[in-house]
Amino acid sequence: MTYVETHHETEWMARWDRHDSADYTREHFHAPPAAHHEDGEDRSYPVSLFDVLSREIVPWIYERMGAVWEEFDR
């Protein structure tokens, strides 16, 4: 799953991956702002995609939305 924001024509992204990797465990996360390969960190996700979305990704996006709104409220 890839999350992408665009601000002033600049992309800000994060990735939740589940695939074989020589550098990370099968389940891993690539952190913002660029989600490059070297930004990866090992993670452990629930088995079902629905649970990954509801427990990992949606709460993360919700927190990110709050951070973005807070940035614009300054």
Rank of each mutant, 00 (worst) to 15 (best):
M1Q: 10
M1A: 15
M1T: 10
Y3R: 14
Y3V: 15
V4I: 15
V4M: 04
E5H: 08
T6H: 06
T6G: 02
T6P: 04
H7G: 13
H8R: 12
H8W: 13
E9Q: 13
E9K: 15
E9R: 14
E9Y: 15
E9F: 14
E9I: 13
E11Q: 12
W12P: 00
W12I: 15
W12T: 11
M13W: 14
M13I: 05
A14R: 08
R15Q: 10
R15H: 15
W16Q: 00
W16E: 00
D17F: 13
D17R: 12
D17T: 07
R18F: 11
R18Q: 05
R18D: 02
H19F: 04
H19I: 02
H19N: 13
D20E: 15
D20N: 14
D20T: 12
D20S: 11
S21M: 04
S21P: 02
S21Y: 05
A22P: 09
A22S: 14
A22N: 13
D23I: 07
Y24L: 09
T25R: 14
R26G: 12
R26M: 11
R26D: 14
R26A: 08
H28C: 05
F29L: 02
H30N: 13
H30A: 09
H30K: 07
P32A: 12
P32G: 14
P33I: 10
P33W: 07
A34R: 13
A34F: 10
A35H: 04
A35N: 03
A35Y: 01
H36Y: 14
H37N: 07
H37W: 09
E38W: 08
E38M: 08
E38R: 05
D39M: 11
G40D: 01
G40T: 03
D42E: 01
D42H: 09
D42Y: 00
D42V: 07
D42G: 05
R43P: 09
R43K: 06
R43N: 06
S44V: 13
S44G: 06
S44L: 05
Y45W: 05
Y45M: 00
P46G: 09
P46Y: 01
V47T: 06
S48E: 04
L49R: 02
L49D: 03
F50D: 08
D51N: 10
D51S: 11
D51L: 01
D51P: 01
L53G: 03
L53R: 02
S54E: 03
S54Y: 14
S54Q: 06
R55F: 05
R55D: 12
E56I: 11
I57N: 04
P59S: 01
W60L: 09
W60K: 03
W60R: 02
I61Y: 00
I61T: 04
I61H: 01
I61Q: 03
Y62F: 06
Y62L: 12
Y62M: 07
E63M: 07
E63V: 03
E63K: 07
E63R: 00
R64H: 08
R64Y: 04
R64V: 00
M65W: 05
M65C: 11
G66D: 07
G66Q: 11
A67C: 11
A67M: 08
A67H: 11
V68H: 01
W69S: 08
W69E: 09
W69C: 07
E70I: 01
E70Q: 07
E70M: 04
E70L: 08
E71H: 10
E71P: 07
E71M: 13
F72V: 01
F72R: 01
D73R: 13
D73A: 06
D73L: 05
R74E: 04
R74S: 06
R74K: 12
R74Q: 01
R74M: 00
R74C: 02
